[in-house]
Simulated scan of single mutants.
Amino acid sequence: MKKRLLCVLLTAAMAVTLAAGCGKSGSDSKKNVKETTSASSGAEDTLIFAQGADPRSLDPAFADDGESTKINTNI
């Protein structure tokens, strides 16, 4: 009985937390994203991709780190 009550309470707490996190209205969130994108990059079709570090080599024969491998697989 206690386990079932605990499970129900945890499920209710998770549902409330998820509902509170998704509470922004659609028009406000789209407006903020558009302003941030156009202000920081200057163009709406620019993709900015951040990596943990710079790749050591773009030659697949000498790529021994993860960041270089990520780039080489896309090339």
Rank of each mutant, 00 (worst) to 15 (best):
N72C: 15
D28W: 01
V16E: 08
A63E: 02
T69G: 02
V16M: 11
K2I: 09
M1A: 14
F49R: 13
K31E: 06
A61S: 09
A63V: 01
S41Y: 05
A19V: 13
T17A: 14
E44M: 13
G42K: 10
L47D: 13
I75A: 14
D54C: 14
S41A: 05
A43L: 01
S29H: 06
V8Q: 10
G21F: 01
S25L: 07
T36V: 12
T11A: 14
S27Y: 06
C22T: 08
R56A: 15
A20E: 07
C7D: 00
V33A: 04
G42N: 13
V8F: 11
D54N: 15
A20Y: 10
N72W: 04
C7R: 00
A43H: 13
S27T: 11
A13D: 09
E35F: 01
A50G: 15
A43C: 07
I71N: 05
S40H: 00
E35A: 04
D64Y: 11
L58G: 08
E67P: 00
A63F: 01
A12H: 03
I48D: 14
K24V: 04
G23I: 04
G66D: 09
K30G: 00
K34N: 04
S57E: 00
L47S: 15
K70Q: 07
L9T: 01
F49D: 12
V33F: 03
A20L: 09
S38E: 11
N74C: 12
A39R: 15
L9C: 01
T36S: 15
A19H: 12
K2V: 07
L6H: 05
T73I: 06
V8L: 12
L6Y: 03
K2W: 03
D54Y: 15
V16T: 10
V33I: 08
A13C: 10
G66I: 02
A63Y: 02
A63S: 13
I48T: 15
S41T: 09
K34E: 05
T37H: 03
E44N: 15
L6G: 03
T69N: 04
L18Q: 11
V8G: 06
K24L: 06
L5E: 00
G23T: 10
T37P: 02
M1V: 12
N32V: 00
Q51E: 09
G52V: 06
N74W: 01
S38L: 10
